[in-house]
Amino acid sequence: MTDITVRALGEEEWQVYRDVRLAALRESPDAFAATAAQEEAFDEELWQARVKRSRRLVAQDGDQIVGVVSVGRVPEGDDKVSELFGLWVSPDLRGKGVAWKLVDAGVRQAREDRYGFVLYWVGTDNGRAVAFASSYGFRPTDGRRAMHNSTEDDPEDEMAMIYPLGDDPGAVPSSVL
């Protein structure tokens, strides 16, 4: 494997974000709240607005985009809390440190943007994701919500995991509980 680099997309690179987001939705349709068909219908203005609304970080292997994560303010939440979301890595590079590099870049971006915490929602039944987030330093909280694909017959929850960026690693904002 060549060196994977991670970089933030500029606002003018909305098409790069669109392409990797649609690739993620097509490859892992159950991992996201939206579908490829829904987002393929979005016009250019909406994609441009999305790139402006949150930081979009991409992992690259040479010129090829192989992963993505977004980081931004929690909607209607505590303005000290940032959220990592939309994490995806190309299947052929999973388990090779790409997700770690993306999450690390997202945490660094949140720190640069002066957030106090990074929130990351993880499926409670997804042991691999929970272990990954825990190994990075995210801690589970009491925050729970139904997953987007949860049904009455097959209920699935996500838990909020938190990574403190400040001096008090034991602090957890009440807005995520």
Rank of each mutant, 00 (worst) to 15 (best):
67 G>K: 12
69 V>T: 11
70 S>N: 14
73 R>M: 12
74 V>E: 13
74 V>I: 13
76 E>G: 09
77 G>N: 15
77 G>S: 15
77 G>D: 15
78 D>R: 07
80 K>F: 00
80 K>L: 03
80 K>W: 06
81 V>W: 04
82 S>G: 15
82 S>A: 15
83 E>K: 15
85 F>G: 06
86 G>F: 03
94 R>V: 02
95 G>V: 13
95 G>H: 14
96 K>N: 10
96 K>F: 02
96 K>M: 11
96 K>I: 07
96 K>D: 08
96 K>S: 13
97 G>S: 12
98 V>C: 08
99 A>K: 12
100 W>F: 11
100 W>N: 09
101 K>P: 06
102 L>R: 08
102 L>S: 01
105 A>S: 15
105 A>V: 08
106 G>F: 02
107 V>R: 13
107 V>P: 04
108 R>Q: 15
109 Q>P: 05
110 A>N: 09
111 R>C: 10
112 E>T: 11
113 D>A: 14
113 D>E: 14
114 R>I: 00
115 Y>S: 05
116 G>I: 07
117 F>D: 00
117 F>S: 01
118 V>H: 00
121 W>A: 10
121 W>I: 02
122 V>H: 10
122 V>D: 07
122 V>C: 10
122 V>G: 03
123 G>T: 07
126 N>V: 12
127 G>N: 01
128 R>C: 01
128 R>Y: 06
128 R>I: 03
130 V>I: 09
130 V>R: 15
130 V>S: 06
130 V>D: 00
130 V>E: 09
131 A>K: 12
131 A>S: 13
132 F>A: 01
132 F>C: 05
132 F>Y: 05
133 A>L: 01
133 A>V: 01
133 A>W: 05
133 A>C: 07
134 S>P: 01
135 S>A: 06
135 S>Q: 11
138 F>L: 08
138 F>T: 00
140 P>C: 00
141 T>K: 10
